[in-house]
Amino acid sequence: MENSSIIKIEKLVKRFPVGKTEFTALNDISVSFGAGEFAGLVGPSGSGKTTLLNIMGSLDSPSEGDVDVLGRSVSSLSHKQSAKLRNHHIGFIFQTYNLLPVYTVYENVEFALLLQKLSGSERKKAVMDSLEWVGLTDKVKSRPSMLSGGECQRVAIARSMVKRPEIVLADEPTANLDSKNSHNILQTMKNLNRELKTTFIFATHDEKVMQYLNRIIFLEDGKIVKDNLINDSKN
């Protein structure tokens, strides 16, 4: 890793209660991510990809070990501090897009900015810039129900990028998309990664995604089994 670490994970263990016993989802994970990486957590279902992504996004907390995100220890953050970290520094992209159905494209993208102290004109500029990145400036007034899956995911990307976060965490972003749309989406994210130096971390088992990654971390049964840096990535 050529860049300084913005996410640093050491000896992370995550257990979930299952009845009277516990299930270990992540076991002794130590890994770091630098600024501007385009990395992926790859592995079969139940390997712990999403759990690791959620902990890095401060949506969940570790059972053991340390997770530092942008210099903040996730386990020591209050709910309010976690919310602030997510709001200002982390963008999320979900498999099912998770767009707010009653909002227009513009409003969906604007939502994250409403939680920040920005003026109306600043918000408008940021939203339009973001929609321009994903090529949806002609759909600002459409509602999610009027968009295709690919368009919905592009809105989700715009929403995650509108606040110019340092990190974007994408959980299976292409799982619901056809091949053509998947490539479009990935190309968009790759461009944003290059232009804005935003760190993208994916949880995926989609080979199409892997083609674009600079780094692939293989997970199996909650453990990192391989961490590959790829210099010759697509595009």
């Binding site: 919310a83 602030k84 997510r86 709001n87 707010l100 994250a112 929403r159």
Partner: peptide, 8 residues
């Protein structure tokens, strides 16, 4: 989603 976007 609200929480992921930064709402408490």
């Amino acid at each position: 989603t609200y929480i992921a976007l930064g709402m408490t």
